[in-house]
């Protein structure tokens, strides 16, 4: 049995654990869908009306039975019906997912494209002024909250220079690629920059470690140029921590970026989940959390596969 199937077999177990946790945790929060939906008017319901609504949402059953029903539905691919949207949960989530995926991929791309070269650049000029400048920016990028970056970008690029739209209803990528990208670029930069700062710092320190390794000295003793030494010999060895960090970050991004979605008025997974929680839309919360957990599992698997691709010692086993 190969490694991949082994890993895939562990997925259902993890998801089962996650489902148990979220199912019971969400019910610990006071209030329910009826109160959330009707607000103060919920107090005006008669006992009979309340009971029939509870029966409609399946809230009249003991909690274990509710879980059992939901789990049974899960095996048929049915995540239940969202209370707020009145549509199947899976449909609601999948409608939001393309945006979140696109936003995650774009901001990852930006952060790696900025962070890795910046980290390598700083590491090869350690303690010189250019290194200090990079480190200063990395520190700034990490410590500035994303809403500040987002607002500053909107102010300059959209409001002052009118280069990019600030608001407007969301345009899917395949409907109008240009319109979509012009909408997505600011939020991607906002998310990407703070993460780029983290990538810069970790690639810098990994490169510093690797540059003092013996095989780098060997490469130099062969007469390799600084460019070959840095990009061919050192960088591939320094990428493992970068991949680890990126994996964790990517997993979080796929769970939705609430603040950035809010600032740029994007209908992503983050806002969906947040709204579902405040609406006590139990099926939707459960579905969304399960979906996010699955994303994490897949990303972790990809990270492990990336390790194997980067390092033959992991790929081929051995010391």
């Amino acid at each position: 049995m190969n490694y991949l199937t082994q890993r895939l077999l562990t997925f259902p177990l993890v998801l089962l654990g996650v489902s148990l946790l979220v199912f019971f945790a969400i019910r610990l929060v006071p209030g329910d869908a009826i109160i959330a939906m009707l607000g103060t008017e919920a107090g005006l319901l008669t006992e009979a009306q309340r009971a029939s609504l509870a029966a409609y949402f399946g809230l009249d059953q003991p909690i274990v039975v509710q879980y059992g029903r939901w789990l049974a539905g899960l095996f048929e691919g049915n995540l239940g019906i969202s209370v707020t949207y009145g549509k199947p949960v899976l449909e609601v989530i999948l409608a939001r997912f393309p945006l979140t995926l696109e936003l995650s991929l774009l901001s990852m791309l930006i952060s790696l494209a900025v962070g890795i070269p910046a980290g390598v650049f700083a590491a090869t000029r350690v303690d010189r002024p250019s290194d200090l400048v990079v480190r200063l920016f990395a520190m700034l990028g990490q410590s500035t909250p994303s809403f500040v970056v987002g607002l500053v970008l909107i102010y300059f690029l959209s409001v002052t220079f009118r280069m990019l739209p600030a608001m407007g209803s969301f345009t899917p990528l395949f409907v109008d690629p240009i319109g979509n990208l012009s909408q997505m670029i600011l939020p991607s930069i906002t998310l990407g920059l703070s993460f780029a700062a983290a990538v810069t710092r970790i690639s810098r320190s990994a490169m510093l470690d690797v540059l003092s390794d013996d095989y780098v000295r060997t490469a130099r003793s062969k007469g390799a140029s600084q460019r070959d030494v840095v990009w061919k010999h050192a960088l591939p060895n320094a990428l493992i921590p970068v991949v680890t960090l990126s994996g964790v970050e990517f997993g979080y991004l796929l769970g939705g970026a609430v603040i950035v979605e809010q600032i740029f008025a994007l209908p992503g997974l983050g806002r969906l989940t947040l709204d579902a929680i405040s609406q006590r839309d139990y099926p939707l919360v459960q579905g969304a959390v399960l979906f996010i957990a699955l994303n994490f599992l897949v990303v972790n698997l990809l990270v492990d596969l990336a390790y194997a691709a980067l390092d033959p010692r992991i790929r081929l086993g051995g010391k």
């Binding site: 013996d214 095989y215 000295r217 060997t218 061919k232 060895n237 033959p312 010692r313």
Partner: peptide, 9 residues
């Protein structure tokens, strides 16, 4: 043990 680059053949 450490003088050869582990990621290249």
């Amino acid at each position: 043990m450490t003088s050869l680059n582990p990621v290249h053949t």
